[in-house]
Design a protein around this nucleic acid. Structure first.
Lengths: 211, 211
DNA sequence: CAAAAAATACCTGAATGGAGGTAATAGAGA
DNA sequence: TCTCTATTACCTCCATTCAGGTATTTTTTG
């Protein structure tokens, strides 16, 4: 009998998940919490073996809560739950101590399997989460393929912008007029289709244009 | 009968794994490759359902090979194998299209389970790999201790700066005076010891302060 | 060689950023 | 209760950025 706490602010979801688990016969839901504060309290009091944690909570987000739980409890397995399937969230959830990740449109079998998996010490990511990670991988490939061709000088300017130099500082370093530097910056922004230096750096990093 | 290709330069390991799989009865090893070139060739020719991929190969490393395979084959499930258990390798292996990760000192049951898991569409990480990720999490916590503590509002401002919004845009979004936003920005720059927004973003990324 | 691409330089005006402050209010914790 | 921190807000001055241009000189390439 594995003891489980569910953390979700929607009663419907909490009850639904709880019913799924109970019907399996050999797991027991010991509490359903509606927010982070309540969850921390119940977890400390009941010390469950597994926590099913909604990522979108009213007070704190689930990733933060996961990190908070890990500060006082390293043994309990934490499985994230969301309706939307965001690749960025999945990885940061795992980085903050999560053991598994499920979408709310899961089947009962998948939920039970995920619980068994994390209890055995492995990490479980749902099929859909897996799919998302592959999509992310593909979009990286596409981005590399579609990336703009920068001239030598543009790469140089971009590099120094990345290093945090201002236009005039770069001009001085490269023995150019600051007007020239601004022209290159302007062209860079046009090529990467952004309208500020911040976004330019971000895009450049995303598209791996820096060296 | 699931078709499997093993890629490993050590005959002993290749044969050992192969025996483990065959003994399960319902999986079939269709090829054992000793290097990346051979592997690519065999995968294209035999189109296996699962690839067991040694991360330490003589010619290319397994992560690179995984990425190469994904360029022409998105369906085949790829499970990484290593003797050493490096957290950084695990995450970059997954980011490059891997579906699972095992240590070579695994039990036969775990190998079979991992194959079943990835075939069903999930990602499987071994207990030890999981353990490693938790360790990495702990070291992140330690790093958190050493790096500056940002308030909730500061994190929020930092996030939108990272997204490329200007001071006034953030002010509008958060229903604040632009003066307030600039104050937070100023405090952030002081905490991270920099003197421009560019450098602020860089430092924040380096120190993993962005969520 | 001729055309295209890259690099250079210049200008203006409006918006934004950065350094230097000051200060009131709300909330948490000792 | 009192102190400390977080959050909010305000101000000035000057530097920098960004969006519009235009235009000349090199370099590359078909």
């Amino acid at each position: 009998m594995i003891s489980i706490i569910i953390v979700d602010d929607h009663p419907l979801v909490g009850e639904g998940v709880s019913t799924m688990i109970r019907s399996s016969g050999y797991h027991s839901v010991v509490a359903i919490c509606k927010n982070a504060a309540e969850a921390v309290e119940q977890i400390k009091a009941l010390n469950p073996e597994v926590i099913l944690l909604d990522i979108n909570l009213p007070d704190t987000d689930g990733i933060e809560l996961c990190s908070i739980i890990r500060k006082f409890n390293k043994a309990t397995k934490i499985i994230g739950l969301t309706s939307t399937n965001e690749a960025g969230i999945i990885s940061s959830f795992l980085a903050n101590g999560g053991n598994g990740y499920l979408l709310k449109n899961m089947e009962r079998e998948e939920l039970i399997k995920a619980i068994d998996e994390v209890m055995s010490g492995a990490i479980y990511l749902s099929k859909a989460a897996n799919q998302k990670i592959l999509e992310q991988f593909n979009s990286v490939l596409d981005a590399v393929h579609a990336r703009p061709v920068l001239t030598r000088r543009e790469k140089e300017i971009l590099h120094w912008l990345y290093e945090g130099l201002t236009g005039p500082q770069i001009a001085e370093k490269l023995f150019l007029s600051h007007y020239t530097v601004e022209t290159h910056r302007k062209n860079l922004m046009q090529k990467l289709n952004v309208n500020s230096t911040q976004q330019l750096i971000r895009q450049a990093l995303d598209q791996k244009l820096l060296n």
